[in-house]
């Protein structure tokens, strides 16, 4: 039992990590909280479903279409909504509210098109799976963990060793200086939205395969991913991964003590506890978005 919970936690944690890392990627560049990340997550799953169940494409091909669709959706939302707002010099809270509006529209469109009930993605194959330390892991679950691990490691490698990764880091750390040096902020912004949305879409597909999909899956996953980002710190992939695993372990092991329905609340209780003990800057005062220099 305990080892099964551990296995479940690793699977969930890996997906939280993918959501969190992709969210942080965009957040650090765009500078505002884009709720639409939850939408690209769900869109990946639902488009894959449509391609697989309605168009009869094999799951992997459908999945590829889903990832591309998520990326395109992220780009489109950015082009239509976020860039228009940026041109009007909208402050981050206004961007947040707009993204929330877009998310609400998207979630309800999914609801209209696919219905509210929980659906599986892919055929549920009743397979005994492999036995690992007394727990059962299916081939699909192993594949999911492998895919996430590969994507996150590849991401970390790109960010630290390849030129474009350095450019992204530069913009995230010092926007003005990056511009002076000749990096195109708009291009980097567009790139991270595309890449981040694709990663979110992938996470959504893997999630749906493992756990079923509902129209509200995006918000749920997003909020957990954000908590992982807050606890793990925005700056390193490993910090976020550790935090994601921690949250997933806490969620899964908590069912030994409380009913499973509390799992989502557990994540936020952990966030509250974290906030209570972490230090705040400037006695927690917010200035007019300028630091006290």
């Amino acid at each position: 039992m305990l080892s099964q919970l551990f296995v479940n936690a690793v699977i969930a944690g890996s997906l939280y990590a993918l959501v969190a890392v992709s969210f942080a990627l965009i957040y650090r560049i765009a500078g505002f909280f884009h709720f639409t990340h939850g939408l690209t997550f769900a869109a990946g799953a639902y488009v894959t479903f449509a391609a697989h169940a309605w168009l009869r494409l094999p799951l992997v091909a459908a999945g590829a279409i889903g990832v591309v669709a998520a990326a395109l959706l992220g780009m489109a939302i950015r082009a239509v909504v976020f860039r228009s707002l940026a041109r009007r010099a909208a402050p981050p809270l206004v961007m947040l509210l707009a993204s929330l509006g877009v998310y609400v529209v998207g979630q309800n469109v999914i609801s209209l098109a696919f219905g509210d009930s929980s659906r599986p993605l892919g055929e549920s194959v009743i397979s005994p799976g492999l036995a690992v330390f007394g727990a059962r892991v299916t081939e699909a679950q192993l594949a999911s963990i492998a895919v996430v691990a590969a994507v996150l490691m590849g991401f970390a490698v790109v960010m630290t060793t390849i030129g474009i990764g350095h450019q992204i880091q530069a913009v995230a750390n010092d926007r003005e200086l990056s511009e002076v040096v000749g990096i195109s902020i708009a291009a980097i912004d567009g790139l991270v939205f595309t890449l981040g949305s694709a990663m979110a879409g992938l996470a959504g597909i893997l999630w749906a395969i493992d756990q079923n999909m509902t129209p509200t899956m995006g918000m749920r996953a997003l909020l957990i991913g954000v908590v992982a980002m807050i606890i793990g710190g925005q700056k390193t992939v490993s910090g976020v991964v550790l935090a994601s695993m921690f949250l997933a372990l806490a969620q899964n092991y908590s069912i030994l003590f409380v009913p499973t329905a509390w799992q989502d609340a557990i994540v936020f209780l952990i966030l509250v506890a974290f906030l209570l003990v972490s230090p705040s800057g400037f006695f927690g005062l917010r200035g007019r978005r300028r630091s006290l220099t």
Partner: peptide, 11 residues
């Protein structure tokens, strides 16, 4: 409608 209204207002 709510979502669209929110986005339109922000814009």
């Amino acid at each position: 409608m709510y979502g669209v209204l929110l986005v339109v207002m922000m814009l």
